[in-house]
């Protein structure tokens, strides 16, 4: 069983990541719930989706202190949701900064050195440039699948299950590029 959160900025493809993870664990016969965000917050706002799987899952929501893994598509979002991580959880972060509007308008400041802040607070976290890898794989849109790859490498689920879930979830034309992106994320965690 695990509680996995996917956090990012609306439009970054967090929904697809949660659906791949959901389909992977469902194919193992687990009970699973995935909670998504649609509508206004998808327009560039802070978004969070939850995936929970176990023998029996009641709530679709993960609450503070309960996440085993947080996939963060952006550093500020990693910071925002860090209180949701369990003490022995893991934050997997795309080392990418997107200024929110209050920062753009000068009402707020983007915190400097988020990796350092999280390290000082003792939050177990790994940062890497998933966007660069996605571009190398063939499309920057595959950043979500690079992060899923990094998650998969740390979990006790066969790689084949993940790859089948990707095949079942993404559009046929994008299967190859996404499998490549997955592999790149998978290797960085194993390394």
């Amino acid at each position: 069983m695990a509680n996995i959160m996917i956090v990012g900025v609306g439009g970054q493809g967090t929904l697809l990541a949660s659906r791949i993870i959901g389909n992977a664990v469902a194919s193992m016969g687990c009970d699973v719930k995935v909670s998504e965000v649609h509508g206004m917050s998808q327009r560039g706002g802070s978004v969070v989706t939850y995936v929970r799987y176990s023998e029996k899952v009641a709530s679709p929501i993960i609450e503070p202190g309960q996440a085993d893994y947080i996939l963060a598509f952006e550093e500020l979002e990693a910071l925002r949701w860090s209180s949701y991580l369990k003490k022995d959880g893991l934050m997997i972060v795309n080392a990418n900064n997107i200024d929110p509007m209050p920062v753009i308008t000068g009402q707020a400041k983007y915190p400097e050195n988020i990796p350092g802040i999280l390290k000082d607070a003792g939050v177990p976290s790994m940062f890497f440039d998933a966007l660069a890898m996605a571009k190398e794989a063939g499309t920057e849109k595959a950043v979500n699948v690079v992060l899923v790859g990094a998650l998969a490498a740390g979990m006790d689920i066969d790689k084949e299950i993940w790859e089948n879930a990707i095949r079942a979830t993404v559009k046929p034309a994008f299967i190859d590029v996404n499998l490549k992106a997955f592999q790149m994320g998978y290797e960085i965690k194993k390394a």
């Binding site: 998808q42 503070p64 979002e77 209180s83 929110p100 802040i117 607070a121 939050v123």
Partner: peptide, 15 residues
């Protein structure tokens, strides 16, 4: 909650 004292992040409203 293990990490409740991490500094708050600026809001990110939809745009």
């Amino acid at each position: 909650i293990a990490f409740k004292d991490v500094p708050a992040a600026p809001m990110r409203p939809p745009v």
